[in-house]
Amino acid sequence: MGSLLFSSNTQWVLLSTTILGIAAGTIGSIAYWKRQNLMSDALSHAALPGVVVAFLLLGEKKLFVLIIGAAISALIGALFIQVIHASSRISEDAAMGMILSIFYGLGVMLLTISNRIVSGNQSGLDKFIYGQAAAMVKTDVFTMLFLALLVILIVFLLFKEWKIYLFDPVFAKGIGLSIKGMNIIYTALLVTTIVIGIQAVGVIMMAALLITPAVSARYWTQSFKMMLLLATFFGGISGSAGTFISAYGSGWPTGPFIVVVASSIFIFSLFFGKEKGILVRHMQFRMHQKKIALQPPGSRQREWNK
């Protein structure tokens, strides 16, 4: 057991899923305030057909090749969502729902075909649905590490710009920030994070890794900076702990374990979160109740009239 965990490949995989979790936490916080949580879900599902097509066309299973296919297909999905929303009366979330199911259905169909063409389950592409970090080779790990670090770097470099872009885009445009440019950067970072995660976490679970750390962080803080930092922390823990646990069983998928860890952090935050946690709110309510009960009727009124 120990030898497996400390084999150099596992260490690299562990590092890369940790960094992936951190990247997902940062860009997820931005998606949260852009009120586009479903977007990450739609785009990660939309990446699947691209993975299969890239494999069928190039016959390679290197992460880098598959990432490009995934990115193209996710971007096409994003474009469709925008076109549907802009040119019809269909709302944005309905458009996301449509694209999610259509692209995912197409992906599964292509997967079945490719499994027939490549004898048996040789392609191993079905791993992309639930994710299998252990299947990654060193070049995959490096590709993922590099891109994840790039995402993190850009998010933190543009910290001030994200803030105004999310809080007041109209004012931001007024003082000369290109909202179109920020939209492009945001979509590019989101898609990058999704596609580098699909091998380790899988297309279904990737959305959860993007959304959950950000939502959990929201329960602890009232500052955007802190939220971003906490989301990176929660994301990193989810990524590493999930990978660690899945390494115990041979052939265990990584994605579900990462999501289980992320969800546990969320449930803990939901109850005990310092700012919005259920327990804290309840205690505050009881405290006020007691205060009111202690005062004789009418005394408050007198206090106000002073």
Binding site: W33, F167, D168, S223
Partner: peptide, 8 residues
Amino acid sequence: SVDWDFPT
């Protein structure tokens, strides 16, 4: 026109 829930 803005989201006053934004944490800032």
